[in-house]
Amino acid sequence: MVRAGAGIVYAALFIGSLLFGVVPTAVFASVMSVLCCYEFYRIMRLDGKVPNEFVGLVASVLFPLSVLVDPVWLTVINFLLVLLLGLWYVKNPRTRIADVAVTAFGAIYTGYMLSAIVLLREAIPGLEGALLSIGVCASLWLSDSFAYMVGSRFGKHKMVPKISPKKSWEGFFGGLLGSVVVWIIIWWTGLYEINLWFSILCGVVVSIMGVFGDLLESRIKRGVGVKDSGNLIPGHGGMLDRSDSLIVGVITAYLMLHLGGVL
């Protein structure tokens, strides 16, 4: 019940920000980014790394907000991030290149990648844009849910037991089905210039990339020996645990829709 309640609150806040417009979406994505980035740096500190948290966290906040000004600012912030970390490395002889790399990766992995939520919401104005953004996120959430339900009941063949022991191939294909169902609904609404086969392709690819995002975060945690990235969301762990599939899945959807001429 606690897990379900926390998940409902998270989803309500997320969907509410998408419905209320680009600015609330950017603010929500920025909060998600900085929380995810903070948890990532916490994990890295346990592994003996010393990230420059001030620079990294500021970048993670600014990435989603910068889309409100102009998407070109994503490149500007990336440049400034590398420049500042380079100056930090040159100035401080005790700083290791691993600390610089971890700092940069944390900000890009969270802030830059989650900026795709804002880019997607901004691409189509009004309610249609909100519904498409919700649909993309829902496809990843339903993929996770279907994977869990199918894997719990029928899962026998493990995918990557050393990284994520509970994931099975049966659950993986169940997740694909859940994602494709949502993308078919997106096509069925007739609100967007997208054909059925491209919708199915998007559903499959986005689901696969969402699983990759989940495995990537699991690999990061197992490399350090922690179960959860944090305890912010009861029953779910940290914000990074909750957002791992979105981090990779949403930017994949945005790129596919953009390159496919839908946006």
Results as ranks from 00 to 15, higher is better:
Val204Ser: 03
Leu87Gln: 10
Leu74Val: 06
Leu83His: 07
Ala98Asn: 12
Thr95Asn: 12
Ile208Asp: 01
Gly223Glu: 06
Asp244Val: 00
Arg242Gln: 02
Gly56Pro: 00
Gly135Trp: 02
Arg222Met: 04
Val9Tyr: 07
Cys36Ala: 15
Gly21Thr: 08
Ala107Leu: 01
Asp70His: 15
Ile184Met: 15
Gly129Pro: 02
Gly171Gln: 04
Leu196Tyr: 10
Leu80Trp: 14
Ala147Cys: 12
Gly210Ala: 05
Leu259Gly: 02
Phe20Val: 13
Asp47Thr: 07
Leu191Ile: 06
Lys227Glu: 13
Tyr109Thr: 02
Leu132Gly: 02
Ile124Asp: 01
Tyr112Phe: 15
Ser143Met: 13
Gly261His: 13
Cys37Pro: 02
Gly238Met: 05
Gly238Leu: 05
Asp228Met: 09
Val100Gln: 00
Met159Pro: 01
Lys91Val: 13
Ser143Asp: 13
Gly213Glu: 03
Val82Glu: 07
Ser60Thr: 08
Ser245Val: 01
Val226Pro: 02
Gly7Leu: 11
Gly135Lys: 03
Gly16Cys: 08
Lys166Thr: 10
Leu246His: 05
Leu246Ala: 04
Val72Asn: 11
Gly106Phe: 00
Met239Ile: 13
Glu217Met: 12
Leu83Tyr: 14
Leu131Glu: 09
Ala130Thr: 01
Leu201Tyr: 14
Phe212Ile: 15
Trp73Tyr: 15
Ser66Gly: 05
Met149Phe: 15
Lys158Pro: 06
Leu80His: 05
Thr25His: 08
Ile124Gly: 00
Arg96Trp: 07
Gly230Ala: 10
Ser33Trp: 01
Gly5Thr: 11
Phe173Ser: 09
Cys37Ala: 12
Ile194Pro: 00
Leu68Glu: 03
Leu46Ile: 11
Met113His: 04
Leu263Thr: 02
Ser145Asp: 04
Val205Gln: 05
Leu13Val: 09
Asn231Asp: 14
Asp47Tyr: 09
Val102Ala: 13
Gly175Leu: 05
Met1Glu: 07
Ser179Val: 07
Arg222Trp: 03
Leu62Thr: 00
Leu87Thr: 10
Gly106Val: 00
Leu84Ile: 11
Asp228Gly: 10
Ile77Met: 09
Leu176Asn: 08
Leu83Glu: 08
Leu13His: 01
Leu119Glu: 01
Phe14Gly: 00
Pro93Ala: 09
Ser143Val: 06
Glu217Leu: 12
Arg3Gly: 04
Val22Tyr: 05
Ile251Asn: 00
Asp70Cys: 08
Gly261Met: 14
Asp70Gly: 08
Val160Cys: 13
Lys158Ala: 10
Leu85Ala: 03
Val9Ile: 15
Met149Arg: 11
Met159Leu: 15
Leu246Ile: 13
Ile77Cys: 03
Asp70Ile: 07
Asn78Tyr: 05
Lys162Ala: 15
Ser168Lys: 04
Ser179Leu: 08
Leu196Pro: 03
Phe198Ile: 07
Gly48Thr: 06
Val211Pro: 00
Leu131Asn: 06
Leu18Met: 14
Ile15Thr: 13
Leu87Ile: 14
Val180Glu: 08
Thr25Phe: 05
Trp187Ser: 06
His258Met: 10
Asp214Ala: 09
Glu122Lys: 14
